[in-house]
């Protein structure tokens, strides 16, 4: 992942000029998922922006989009600077700073054993971030977020200490290393998008069923790239929509993966963008884009996999119940 710090009293306004989130409205110590957009409303990347303080943002974006993202952020910063605004940017090289994702229902219990103040975790809710000593490290950034639909954290740690911290985390034997295949199953079950597969520059947040990422204030202000196109789509609708799909209960069928065509009564109506067998539901799950007419959960479709048709249905996402550590509703 690309980790970036943006400093200065105009940091929030600066990042808002390139994404759809209400960063000014975030409370200090909390973050949000957002997207970089282009003038057509297409998604250039998805990323997490955390407001560490009123003058400091911590941004995590996709490693695969690193060059592009650095360009987008750098040009926003130099644009702001040229207007005399107060903002600077600091990209953390992977050789200097690493990010460990620790995910699962037992994470808080395990992590607490390495924290000098374990009670910190009880007040660290989903999408909140803090800086703390951990194990033998004087200072790491812990953000309660992840890419699995489960409770968990991402820990930003100096690269020369990351192995030591990983070993400390593995010590009790309760935490285990997981590969990208496992993570892909989890993020699919959680209905989370994979950039480059489920969303890209040719899909808009509205088509991707991510309209919730376009903050209310920003819809009125129309002050982000592609705002006109996106707000128009919010009003008049779109032709296609990202939906969840699953094979029917008990059916024997292969998992539908990227580029599998979706048919409805013999007519091509969409395409799968990613899919896998879901260990939690025992069915094959997928997500993809389907003609707006057929987006309702329960709609029967056929998936064409290696020239054979298999029955499936449009399904609400997430496929499994999320288990985020949310702040109790007051």
């Amino acid at each position: 992942m690309l980790q970036t710090y943006v400093h200065g009293k105009d940091a929030a306004a600066c990042l808002e000029s390139i994404c759809t989130a209400d960063i000014s409205g975030l409370l200090s110590g909390s973050g949000t998922l957002t997207v970089f957009t282009n003038e057509a409303g297409g998604i250039l990347d998805d990323l997490i922006v955390n407001k560490v303080s009123e003058k400091e943002l911590y941004v995590v974006s996709n490693a695969a989009m690193k060059q592009q993202d650095m360009g987008i952020m750098e040009s926003a910063v130099s644009n702001f600077k040229s207007q005399g605004k107060d903002v600077t940017i600091e990209f953390l090289a992977p050789s200097e700073q690493s990010l460990l994702a620790v995910q699962g229902p037992q994470v808080a219990t395990e992590l607490a054993q390495l924290l000098p103040k374990p009670e910190l975790l009880r007040q660290l809710y989903f999408m909140q971030t803090l800086s703390t000593p951990l194990a033998d490290l004087p200072n790491v950034r812990i953000t309660r977020c992840g890419y699995t639909g489960e409770d968990g954290v991402e820990i930003s740690v100096p690269s020369n200490r990351v192995e030591q911290l990983t070993e400390a985390l593995l010590e009790s034997g309760k935490l285990k290393l997981a590969g990208l295949g496992a993570r892909d199953s989890l993020r699919l079950e959680a209905g989370l998008c994979l950039y480059g597969s489920d969303i890209d520059e040719h899909t808009t947040p509205v088509e991707a069923a991510l309209s919730w990422l376009v903050a209310k204030r920003r819809r009125t202000a129309l002050d982000f790239p592609g705002a006109a196109a996106i707000v128009r789509q919010l009003k008049v609708g779109v032709q296609r929509r990202r939906v969840g799909l699953q094979t029917l209960e008990g059916a024997k069928s292969p998992p539908a993966r990227a580029s599998v065509d979706i048919y409805r009564e013999g007519k091509l109506v969409g395409q799968v963008t990613s899919g896998c067998p879901s260990p939690s539901t025992g069915r094959n799950i997928a997500m993809g884009y389907i003609a707006e007419t057929w987006k309702a959960p329960g709609t029967r479709v056929e998936l064409k996999i290696r020239d054979k048709f298999y029955e499936a249905e449009v399904t609400k996402m997430p496929f499994t119940k999320a288990n985020y550590y949310n702040k109790p509703k007051q």
Partner: peptide
């Protein structure tokens, strides 16, 4: 989020 999905 991104990671390489192409499995040779």
């Amino acid at each position: 989020m991104v990671f390489l999905t192409k499995f040779a």
